[in-house]
Nucleic acid binder design. Structure first.
Lengths: 233, 233
DNA sequence: GACTGTGAATACCTTCACAGCA
DNA sequence: TGCTGTGAAGGTATTCACAGTC
C-alpha cells in the first residue's frame, strides 16, 4: 500500500496533510449524540435532588449522584454545550436545570404510547409505565391472541393487530413499543409507522429496517446477556 | 489559557508535540470493547444463515443480514482483529465463524441465572429465556412477596430474598438479573455479589455502585423512552 | 474479478489544564 | 477560594483506499 493516495478525498474537505487541525467546520454545532443518555441521568438525579429540597448542586455533587463513572468534567462539558447554565463559583440551579433538560429531552410534556404484544413483557412494561412514569401513558394495546382481544386492562380495551391501522391514527400516540416475537416484528413496525408513529422501542431480537426519519431503540435481552457472558468467559 | 502547559503530563508518556503519532504502544492489542455487541449480532446472523444451510458468507451478505447500519468494512475490521478467519476472494466459513464467535462471547457453554424480583417483568424475562434461549437456564428465583415465596414456577421453588446468601452459593449461577424496585436494587446487588455472582443485568432505574470486577449492564426503560422523546421533541 | 485484511485518515468522544468569574 | 466554561490534547472507533490472495 501507501503508493499514491489522496487522489479522491471526500469532495470538499481540506485534506492537507498538516499536523491535525481538528476542524470545527462552521457552526459550534456540538451534536451531543453521545450525551443524550447522560442528560437523562442528570435529569433524574436533579429531580431526586429537587425532591430532597436541594436548590443548588455542583457538578461534583451531581456526578456522585448519577454514578456510573461519569465525571464532573463530563457533566460540565455536556451542560455547557447547552448554553450557560451554571454560576461560576456556585454551581447549578437545580430547578432551572431540570426544566432545561426536560425541554431538551421532550419530558416537559406527556406522551401517549401504543403497545403491540401484550404477553408477560408487554404487561410488565405497561404496568411499570403506568405506576412509575407519569409522563408516559398507555393509550392503545394490540395483540393477536383471541383470549386477549376484547378484554380490558385498566379500562383500556385490547384490540386485534388487524385493527391497528384503523384505530391508531386517531389516538395521537408518538411512541410504539414492540414486544412481539421476532418473526412478527418487522410487520408490526411497518404497521405502526404506517399509522403515524414516530418512534419505536423494540424488544424483539431482530433488526428492523425502517425509514430513517423514525427513531428506533432496540433492547435485546440475549445481546445484553452475551455481553455479560463475554466478561465472565 | 495556553500559557505554560505540558508541565505535568501523565508520568511516562512521550507527550512530544509532534504531528500525531497514533502510538500503538507495544502489543497489537486492539481491545475490541466496542465490537462485542456487534460480535453477538454477527453470531446470531450466522446462526440464522447456518440454519438455512448457508455454508459461506461474505462480509456484504452478513452486513445485510445483521442490518442496523453496520457496514461490511466494519464487519471485516471486527473479524480480522480476532485472527485470520476468512478466505480472500471467497468469504467466511459460517460454521467455523459461529464456533469462533461463540467461544469469544462465552456462548459455547450453558449459563445458570438467578432472578431476583418475580413480578411481571421477572416472569416475562424468565419465560423468554426458558423458551427462546437454550444456553440460559433459570436456576434460582427470589422475591419478598409472601404470596409468591414457596410457590413454584416450572418446577422451581421461589425463595425469599433473605435466603439468597444461604441458597445461592451452591447453585453455581454466573449471572444475576435484578428486577426489583429502585430502592431495593443496591441491597439485592450486594447480596448477589456476596453469594458469588460475577455479572449482573439490572433493570432497576438506579445506578449501582459495585466492585469493578463484577460486570454490570443496566437496562433502563425510562431512559430509552426519553431518548426517543428527544428525537420527537 | 471478488473478496478479505489492514494502515492511514477521519470522525467522534473524553479528559486535561487552566482561564474566567462570583 | 471554589466553582463553571472551554480550547486543546489524548484516546477510541469508524471509514477509506488499496494491497494481498484465491
Amino acid at each position: 500500500m501507501r503508493t499514491l493516495r489522496n487522489t479522491k478525498r471526500r469532495s470538499l474537505r481540506p485534506s492537507n496533510g498538516k499536523a491535525r487541525v481538528r476542524t470545527r467546520r462552521g457552526l459550534p454545532n456540538r451534536s451531543l449524540v453521545a450525551s443524550i443518555p447522560r442528560l437523562f441521568l442528570y435529569h433524574r438525579g436533579l429531580e431526586d435532588a429537587l425532591r430532597e429540597g436541594t436548590l443548588v448542586v455542583t457538578s461534583h455533587e451531581l456526578a456522585k449522584r448519577v454514578g456510573r463513572g461519569i465525571s464532573s468534567t463530563q457533566i460540565r462539558k455536556d451542560l455547557s454545550s447547552l448554553g450557560t447554565l451554571g454560576r461560576r463559583g456556585q454551581g447549578y440551579d437545580v430547578g432551572m436545570l431540570v426544566q432545561k433538560l426536560a425541554g431538551i429531552l421532550g419530558l416537559d410534556r406527556d406522551w401517549r404510547i401504543a403497545i403491540v404484544g401484550f404477553g408477560h413483557l408487554g404487561r410488565a412494561l405497561a404496568t411499570f409505565l403506568e405506576l412509575r412514569e407519569e409522563k408516559f401513558h398507555i393509550a392503545a394495546i394490540f395483540d393477536t391472541d383471541p383470549n386477549l382481544v376484547g378484554t380490558q386492562w385498566r379500562g383500556l380495551t385490547i384490540s386485534h393487530l388487524d385493527e391497528l391501522e384503523r384505530i391508531l391514527p386517531a389516538l395521537a400516540c408518538g411512541i410504539g413499543i414492540v414486544t412481539v416475537p421476532a418473526a412478527a416484528a418487522q410487520l408490526v413496525a411497518d404497521k405502526l409507522i404506517n399509522a403515524g408513529i414516530g418512534a419505536l422501542l423494540n424488544f424483539a431480537p431482530t433488526s428492523l429496517t425502517l425509514d430513517a426519519k423514525v427513531a428506533v431503540r432496540s433492547i435485546d435481552l440475549a445481546s445484553e446477556l452475551s455481553i455479560l457472558t463475554h466478561h465472565l468467559a
